[in-house]
Structures are given as C-alpha cells and as structure tokens.
Design a protein around this nucleic acid. Structure first.
Lengths: 188, 188
DNA sequence: ATGGGCATGTCGCCTTGTGACATCACCGTA
DNA sequence: TACGGTGATGTCACAAGGCGACATGCCCAT
C-alpha cells in the first residue's frame, strides 16, 4: 500500500523511450513524459539531470563492468581493454540487438542526443584510463590503450547494429582488433 | 559610411570569448553577448546556431586542411592521417598555445561545451574517414585509420596544452604515434 | 502520538531558441 | 530624382527547458 507507484525512475525512462519513438525527441516535452508516467515535471528533473538523460538510464552499469574487467586482468593494456569490451558485449549487449537499434535510431535523429552519447563515451573512456593508471601504467600508455580499445569497440558496434549484420558483437570486436593491429603496425 | 559596423560575427565571437572568461559560460547570457557587441539577441541567433557555437567559430578551417592533406598524400592510411594532423599543427596551432589554453579552460568549465567539442571532433572524424573512403579504402580500414589518428592527436594535444609542456605539437604527434604503434603491435 | 525524513506536487521565475513582423540604409533602375 | 527591392538588424511574443522554494502527506523511529 505504498503512497506512490514503485520505480518512478524506471517508469519515466520507459515513458520517454516510448514517446521519443512515437513523436521524436524534439517533439516530446518533459511534461509529456512525466504525464505518461503519472508524475510531475518537477519530479522528472529530480530523477534526471535533463531530458536526454532519460534515454541513457542504466549506462553506469557499462562503466562498472568495464572498469572491473580491466582492473582484474593481467594482459597487456590494449589487450586488457579489448577483452573488457568483449566481456561487456557478452554481459550487457547479448540479445539486445533490437533494443539497441531502436535506441540508436532515436539518437541518430537528434544532434543533442548525439552530443550526450559522445559525452557518455568520453567519461567512460576516462574511467577506464584511470583504472589502467591505477595499475601503474603511464598517463600516455593508459590513454592510448584505452582510446584504441574504444575505437575497436566503436567500429565493431557500428558493424553490429548495421541492418544486414548477423555476427555477434564479441566476435566483431575480435576481428576489428586484429585489423587495427594491421593498420597501425607497419610504418610503411 | 556603412549602416552597420563590420564583422558582426567576429565581434560576437570576441564578445562571447571575453565574457565567458570574465564570468563563465553559464553566467553569460546571449543577451549579454549581443549587448557587448552592440547588437541584438536575435542577431546573435541568426549568425550562430546557439550560445556554444560562438566559441567554436572558425573550426571549419581545421576540417578543410585535414581533408585536403589526407586526400593528397600517398602514404598508408594511418600514416596519412597522422601526417595530416602534423600539418594542422603547423598551419593552425603554431603560436597559439596561450589562446588554446584559455579556450580549453573555458570548455573544461562547462559540460555543455565539452559535449559540443566532442561533437565537433566527431564530425571532423567522419569527414576524414569519408576522404579516405573516397580514395578507395574499405569502410572499416578508413574508420580505424582515422580514429587511431585522432587518438594520436587527442593525446598529443592534451600533452601540448599541459601546464608544464614546452614541446611543439607536431613533435608530440610524432612521438605519440610511435607509442601507439608499440602498444597495439604485440598480441602479447 | 508525535515529529522528522523523504518523495512528490505546485508555483513562479529566468534563459534558450524561434517565428513573425517592422525598419531602414543601400542600390539599381526608370 | 524618385522608387521599389534587398538584406541585415531590431522588436515583440512565446514555447519549452531547467531550477529554487515551499507545501503536502506518507512512513517510520522513538
């Protein structure tokens, strides 16, 4: 007999996702989202920093898994980051292709959302680099290994969500990592 | 005897830069900027898409130089992108360290500005990758070479603007590229 | 039962960003 | 010389984002 329905945050995120798909991000008002969730606009802003955050709910999980994976392994820095992304692929993205595609098409429709997505990736990168530095690596090595790993993930991810793709994300990551090595290896 | 002072856009960009430094980005209103430039708020929005753009005025130049440099060279893809960034370092960043540092400190103070900066970098990356694809490279190769080159630039740039740094940006780029090769080369 | 904590609602405000319309110098042309 | 068009600018009004401050009413510990 709670006074409020449970999981206000989850309901808002779900309402936002639906509305963004139905009318588009720009055409959806925070008041609309709150209304569909049976809440007030002000409540929305207490649970989310801004309208965009509603679409990025749950992204912290990704950072946690990544940092943990990178910290635990004993492999070389670049290999560690790539392996960590492979683990993320298994633990978080498996069986979510359709969901991810829907999300991606929403993001593609709005410059604001693209900026936010980029920022999430950037702070995630910073977290991973910090984890590598905590293992004793130099600033530069940590940054390069992390960014290269993120590059691999980014490219693999793009292939994964492409309309005609059918390989698993983890396999794509492995392939792309190999290609990256080939491209950067020979000075000529 | 012009009816209006010349270079409204330049005056607005300058006024914005000053005000962002004086009071900070968030504390500066578009109306403030326009007032200092002797113009109206509405005129600001005709010349800039939003408040942030005033700080990124002139960034198109970077993309032009990069794309041209990448297109003209005959080197391997990764080397081509790195060389292009070296050229940018010479043509655009030389003798601008202090200016760049001021700009960077403004950006660092605002999440919104960081997002915009990321987006600029991202669209620049897309342009370079497109230039590589136009040379006949595969989607994946173009993306990996470009992103790796951008990684090198990013890390070198960070070192360059660090308080205690004194090396040239072009030299830093060369060094960092070598380090990237070392990190990604050996699978073990 | 009583009072504090907490999630929520309400009100009002400022700022961003935009549409619609007015203004007015400049310029070519009749 | 007058005249109308063009283009940059100003004015007004407004929707929406975002936030501070305060009110409300359930829950729980004492």
């Amino acid at each position: 007999m709670a006074r409020w329905q449970p999981d206000a945050r989850g309901r808002l995120a779900a309402a936002a996702f639906e509305l963004f798909r139905e009318r588009g991000f720009e055409q959806t008002t925070v008041t609309d989202i709150a209304a569909r969730a049976g809440l007030d606009k002000r409540t929305f802003y207490r649970l989310f920093g801004d309208k965009r955050e509603a679409l990025f709910s749950g992204g912290e999980q990704l950072e946690e898994v990544l940092v943990e994976a990178v910290t635990e392994t004993a492999a070389g820095p670049f290999e560690a980051v790539v392996a960590a992304f492979r683990r993320v692929a298994d633990e978080i993205f498996t069986d979510r292709l359709e969901l991810v595609r829907m999300r991606q098409s929403i993001i593609a429709s709005s410059a604001e959302l693209q900026e936010r997505e980029l920022r999430k990736m950037s702070s995630l990168t910073a977290a991973v680099a910090a984890a590598l530095r905590a293992k004793g690596l130099s600033e530069t090595t940590a940054a390069l290994a992390t960014e290269s790993g993120v590059t691999v993930f980014r490219v693999a991810y793009a292939r994964w969500i492409a309309p005609d793709s059918d390989a698993s994300l983890a396999d794509l990551i492995t392939d792309v990592a190999t290609e990256l090595r080939a491209i950067t290896s020979a000075p000529n």
